[in-house]
Design a protein around this nucleic acid. Structure first.
Lengths: 213, 213
DNA sequence: TTACAATTGTTATAATTTTCACATAATAAT
DNA sequence: ATTATTATGTGAAAATTATAACAATTGTAA
């Protein structure tokens, strides 16, 4: 088997290209060059071509790329040629924001159910959905064939939720709790840690202040 | 001047180490080794030592690191030895979630004001704060000496908000709108794009599926 | 036709980041 | 005192990622 080792940064950029192409397509644009893509998303043209080269040849020399075709390929590559129902655990502010978020209800993603530990929250409505008790997680996710779980609970519950997800056969986790979760190696897990991003900002602001002394 | 070029990945990890040390400190632990830190956050011990080495020597050979001391240094390095009032623009679900979020109200950060374009939202209360009209942004942020702006509005408004932030003298932007914003080169800007993170998951799940064929 | 311009795909080069290995220093034990 | 043990800090090697340069291919215009 050919081991396709693709840098994570490349995948990230593929996602960005894909979204950019979606916009172009909506605007009726039919052809685009690596130069224009690069310009549009703020990377170098060589980077764009190199990234695409990991997955095949999608362009025509001297011409460029067909927007629709390339868009389709990027979606396929990212695994977005299928539906991805999501299960969110935690119906607090964050859970609610995510449930109704555009990013979580587009491009194949759809929040299919929301769970909570707190009996007071269970049964409440969020958009079209009713908040379910966490005890229902295994059954409901299996029934809906959910492969992505989102952790939006407080830190002290996060590991427990992760365990439930693992046991329920969810394959991948998006974790918003700022702690390092222990999961089996074959689970896909990503952490979204807003504090880290903020601290990257303060570090760089501090750096600039120091350099201007 | 010695140009301290630190990889961004290192800064990210510093933030993770710092948070981990905070926990250890709360638990009364006094000494820790690079091995234990590595274990706790899921990187290699060499990586931990190399990362710290960018900023100085903080440990004692044969012994390890003093938790409190190292914690203080990490905070200082990240610029967290000062207060960072934040201004959030957008008081929808996301804006509300962020305003009350732990990550945005800890370690020196504090949501100092929330703005909105929508007159219907202005004046509403979010936690202790009143939602302000966007027109007040320049004045209020200057008064409160705010250097970090958070964009939590819909895509079509994001660039306009960014422009206002730039003009108001805010130095850095945390952007939640999934579009590429144009700002002067000396602005610090980070994008939090949840779709990208989700698509990284689906890509990898797809990859695993392909590999197991 | 032929030459020219545009733009991809790819190879080679450079830069960056991580890993490894070990000299060095501190502590504890004999 | 001497030896053994532990764990840091760092220089060198390996791996990864990005950049640059260019040959190849297409379309166009003279």
């Amino acid at each position: 088997m050919k081991t396709l080792r693709v840098p994570e940064a490349t995948v990230t950029r593929m996602s960005i290209y894909s979204r950019f192409l979606e916009r172009l397509d909506r605007n009726g644009m039919t052809t685009i060059s690596s130069n224009e893509i690069a310009d549009g998303v703020g990377v170098s043209p060589a980077q764009v071509r190199k990234d695409l080269a990991y997955f095949g040849e999608f362009g025509t020399r001297g011409v460029g790329y067909n927007v629709q075709t390339l868009l389709k390929y990027t979606l396929k590559i990212l695994g977005l040629n299928q539906a991805w129902p999501l299960a969110i655990v935690g119906s607090g502010n964050l859970g609610q924001a995510l449930s109704t978020s555009r990013g979580f209800n587009a491009r194949g993603f759809r929040v299919a159910c929301v769970f909570d530990y707190d009996a007071k929250r269970v049964g409440k409505r969020i958009g079209q959905l009713l908040v379910q008790p966490i005890a229902q997680f295994p059954e409901l996710t299996r029934k809906e064939n959910i492969r992505i779980g989102v952790i939006a609970v407080r830190n002290s519950l996060a590991q427990e939720v992760a365990n439930i997800m693992v046991q329920s056969g969810v394959q991948s986790i998006l974790n918003f709790a700022p702690i390092t979760l222990r999961v089996p190696a074959d689970m896909e897990i990503r952490n979204v840690d807003l504090s880290i991003t903020l601290e990257l900002l303060t570090f760089n602001v501090g750096l600039k202040a120091a350099q201007s002394l």
